[in-house]
Structures are given as C-alpha cells and as structure tokens.
Amino acid sequence: MVPRLNPLTLLAAAAAVLVMTTAASSWAVSLTVASGAVALAAALGRARRVLLAGGAILAPFWLSLLVMHGLFYPEGRTVLAGWGPARVTAEGIGFAFDMGLRTSAFVLVLMLFSFSVRVPDLVAALATLRLPPQFGYVLASTLMLAPIIAVRLHTVRQAQESRGLVVEKGLGSRLKAVRLQMVPLVLGLVHDAGTRAQALDARGFRRAGPRTSYREVHDSAAQRFFRWAILLLAGAAVVLRIVASASGGGPA
C-alpha cells in the first residue's frame, strides 16, 4: 500500500515514466522500466496481480507481434529462415522485440498504477483540479468496470450451467460459452446503467454549482513539487528526442 502518496503523484509519476520511455525509444530503457515495474509490484506485494493482468493483455500481443513482424517484416534483409512468402528476418525479430518491450513497459506500469491507487481517492483528487465531476465518474467507472464485469459474467455463467450448459476444456466449447455469455452480459450492464442513471440524477450528480469532497486526500508541498518536476522532466525528454531526431541522431 502507498497510503501517504497522493493519487495525482502516482498518476504523474506513471505518466512521466511512460512519456520518457517512449521518448527514449530504446529496448534497454523499456526493459529496465518493465523490470522496475515488476520489482516495485513485488515490493508492494502486488506482483501476482500485476503479472496476471499484464500477462493476459501482453501474451496475445506478443504472439501477434512475432507472427506479423517476425515472419512478414517487409524491410527484413537478414533472413534467418524462410518458408515461401514467410521469412524470419533478424530485422523483423528485432522490431517485434522492441515494440513488445515498449508495450510491456506501458502495460506493466499502468497495471501497477491501477492496482496501487484507490479509485475513490483518485476521483477525489481529480475533483481538486476542478475537472468536471463526470470526468472523474467515467474514469472511476472504467477502472472499476473490470471487477463488475467479472462478477456479472460469473453470475451469467452460473445461471447457464444450472440450465445445462457444460463448458468443456476444448477451445470450441469455451468460445461457444463466451458467445452465449456476451449478449446477456452486455444487456445486463446496459440495464444496470439505465437504472443507476436515475439514481445519480436524484442524488444531484448532474447538479450545477460548487461541489465538495467528503474524503480528504493527503497531499504535501513536496509532492506538489515532485509532480511538477517529473512532468517537466518528461517534457524535457520529449524535446530532447525531437531535437535528436531533427539532427539525424538519437538513440537506436
């Protein structure tokens, strides 16, 4: 847990790291950031959740990268193996590796952020920036959607199994089950959203005028300074990258 850090500090740090990683455009930096995110997650006791969620996103992504660029990279010259039109080239593998590492750094940092921040605190902190409350609500809903979907999906599946659906281990059976569950899942979520909208209206959510926040989110001068500093650093990294590109150099 990171109890004394303002969610905006965590958000600024995550955003700055991602911007700097992109600006660096270096597999070594990407690998360092990704490893750092996993190490930090482990130190905070969240390695399992971060790796599981990150893995679910990254595994298919890596697979598609290797297939697309490893086998069919147009600029590939150094052929390592070939089967007709499909050629494994060193350049293709290198590109897939670079893209994969960069995306891994992105996903792992964002997973670490979302598993470290308390969503209601983030919403309260965003309210202090005078952002529209709808912005905070949409953000919070998005971050909290995954567990809601998981619960709803579980319920639908239990209802269907209780009426004779047998999900076997094969891919076909699983895909059929997913297809059967998608329509009720979406319809259920839409139905819930409709009834919730009336309650939100009655509770003054769309009301104009000033709002207050019940939750006090800890902040400090040092954290405010850190946020400005790291965002400036990220801006500087982008400028450096542009200058380096314009002069024809830059990191590989």
């Binding site: 605190d121 919070a140 809903s141 909290m144 919730r196 309650a199 509770r203 959510f205």
Partner: peptide, 11 residues
Amino acid sequence: AMLSAVRGTVE
C-alpha cells in the same frame, strides 16, 4: 440501484 458504484466505503 441506489448506489453510485464508484464510492469505496459506506460513509
């Protein structure tokens, strides 16, 4: 259906 669904505690 009465709840906002984005608040972490009862209070």
